[in-house]
Design a protein around this nucleic acid. Structure first.
Lengths: 211, 211
DNA sequence: CGTTTTTTGTGAATGAAATAACAATTTTTT
DNA sequence: AAAAAATTGTTATTTCATTCACAAAAAACG
């Protein structure tokens, strides 16, 4: 595989490129230049060209990029052909919403199982997804070959859940709790801290916004 | 005000420091070192010291930082004393969840009004928050002196909503749509792209995870 | 078919953030 | 009270990311 030494920053932009290319293809657009892309996704055109260049020479000088070819290429890199099964741990407010949401925009991932301790919802189907007892975590993760988990449990049990997920063999965690999880470094943790996002926004507008 | 030239990266960490300091104070801890902080929040100790140093000499050599003093100091910087009113536009799955969530962990912001087009919920109270028609957006934003909005509408109307929010005088937008919004640069936009977070996580575990 | 225009791919320059390293200072210990 | 240990604040260094700028190549045009 060619892909190593892909900067983190570039990797984070790949799904955004992919999504926009899909849009272009659907609208019947055949070719696109780094400048047009730049307008849409709001990254500098040079950044885009540099990003693409890590994967080889994908474009044609004086022409631009072939939308379909580029989309197919990134689709493979992003494993759009294989469906990833995801677990959701903690069916509270946020968890419930994510169940409903189920990342429909992306066709290569779906929540396959949810877990909670609340007896009212354990062994029910929520938004089409079975909710299991937290006690069954390890068994279901193994049986269903799940390797990514979304964690939306209260902060005080997050670390414990993370540990259990790690033991159960999960390879990636999307962490919605404000805690920084301690996990073996073979496991990738992506933090999404909604309160922090809002706080940061408030800080910026309070301190640098032109009144 | 001393605060300018605070790097973005530092600003994003401030709420995290603040939150952990509050935890420490509640647990009765009087002093803390950059190394202890580092263990908890998982940033390098040098990074933490550097962050703090932008605000002056807050610690004491050989001792560390006084938890209460530091917390008070950051509390002021983060405007923990004044309550910010926030609007939520788009009460779908995610919007509904955020209403419920209402950022309770932070006491300086609360959702004061929600907006939607769905007649079933317009003029009802959802999770304790009044839902107005989208038509009333401008009026309510002005009347309630709201200057931050959370946007959880479908992608195809996001740009239009953003424009209206800008005109109505909002100064910050927390954008949950995958679109990059075009707004006057006096308005701060913070993007939260959940699908992208999951896609990026999948990319990393598929390409660099030790099988 | 030659000239002009467009646009890529990339070396070089710049910028931003993270980390290392350590003198300066205070605390703790003996 | 002296010696040892701890810990900051900051200078220097390194790493990572963005942007500039332009030669090379292809396309479009007249």
């Amino acid at each position: 595989m060619v892909e190593h030494d892909i900067p983190r920053a570039t990797a984070k932009r790949l799904p955004i490129y992919y999504r926009y290319l899909k849009l272009l293809l659907d609208s019947g657009t055949v070719r696109v230049s780094s400048n047009e892309l730049s307008d849409a996704v709001k990254f500098d055109a040079a950044t885009i060209r540099r990003d693409f260049s890590y994967f080889g020479a994908l474009g044609k000088r004086g022409y631009g990029y072939d939308v379909e070819a580029l989309m197919t290429f990134f689709g493979e890199i992003l494993n759009q052909d294989t469906l990833a099964s995801v677990a959701l741990v903690g069916v509270g407010n946020l968890g419930q919403a994510l169940l409903n949401f189920n990342f429909h925009q992306s066709s290569n991932a779906r929540i396959a199982a949810a877990f909670d301790v609340n007896p009212d919802i354990v062994n029910t189907i929520q938004s089409g997804i079975p909710v299991y007892s937290l006690d069954d975590l390890e068994k279901q993760i193994t049986d269903q070959r799940i390797d990514v988990a979304i964690v939306t449990v209260p902060a005080d049990v997050a670390q414990d859940v993370a540990k259990r997920l790690a033991t159960a063999g999960v390879r990636g965690i999307l962490n919605f709790t404000p805690l920084r999880l301690d996990v073996p470094k073979s496991i990738r943790v992506q933090n999404v801290d909604l309160t922090n996002e809002l706080q940061t926004l408030l800080y910026f507008i309070n301190n640098f916004g032109e009144k």
